[in-house]
Amino acid sequence: MDWNSIFVTTVKASIGLETVVYALAAIGLNVQFGYAGLLNFGQAAFLGVAAYGLAVTVATFQLPFWLGIVIGLAATVVLAFLLGIPTLRLRADYLAIVTIAAAEIVRLIFRAVKFKDVFGGSDGLQSFSGDFYAMNPYAPGSYGIGSITFTERTMWVLTVGWILVALSCALVYLLMKSPWGRVLKAIREDEDAVRSLGKNVFSYKMQALVLGGIIGCLGGFVFALGQASVQPDLYGTEFTFYAYTIVILGGAARVFSPVVGAAIFWVLLVFIGNTLAEAVGSGVIPSSIMTVSQAGSVRFMLVGLGLMLLLIFRPQGIFGDKREIALDAR
């Protein structure tokens, strides 16, 4: 058992690319689900259209990087309206089914052979991140403490990513302290009551959907740039489910909980995955019980199990206040 390598990868996971991406997705989801009570099961699609908006603009049409960012943002807003207009008047569980269906549609279109020229089929698109890395202020080399080091490329992605996480948290904090946030939380409780008090519930839900989508879309940019590629199947339904797990793990309707939740989620996932893989590889767990590839599925079984146990025994998550969480309303 190589505990040192397990330790190093685990520590790196706590601030790594996945943590940043999932934190941004979860912050957005927390606005929609935690504060406004919207069951958006299509968060993966918001990250997907942003990532593809950027990648298609730069890689397929050879247009500038910043235009790609603008198009990614615009695509996210358009998706939010497309999803929101028909569904935000409907019951919560209907919204869930529609958003999950829409996310599947988006993924299937991205990976379709028919549109391979534009979206690159199931292989996705590469070579659109050159301009981003050209802006890298870090000189080539390796940065870090002891054996926990990152390359200059990773450092640049992580720096930008964490700045975006911080800005998003600040934005959510300011909004939720304000009367705007109050209306949102009230809608989560009972939208008819809010309507009877003269608030345009539909408009607030739409604002929450767009805001959550835009914060998520930042995650899409970071994901695409960090991997220097986009692939349709990364933006599947399970991405959204993991983001939900993160929100609930941290505690819904808390500003920093998605960030902490994301870090814990990935630390556990990497730690368990690597420990199991090491244990199988070094023969501590005999291969008759588990092979290396099976160790991979055990981690995700634990995610499912963890999600169930959290909701049953601690629905307020780590930081939530049991008296004011969205989860046991109704």
Partner: peptide
């Protein structure tokens, strides 16, 4: 709105709030 405080419930009723 049971997960808002009594005061927050009341404030919600006011119209034309700039902060909304």
């Amino acid at each position: 709105l049971s997960k808002l405080t009594v005061m927050e419930n009341m404030r919600l009723g006011a119209q034309n709030q700039r902060g909304e």
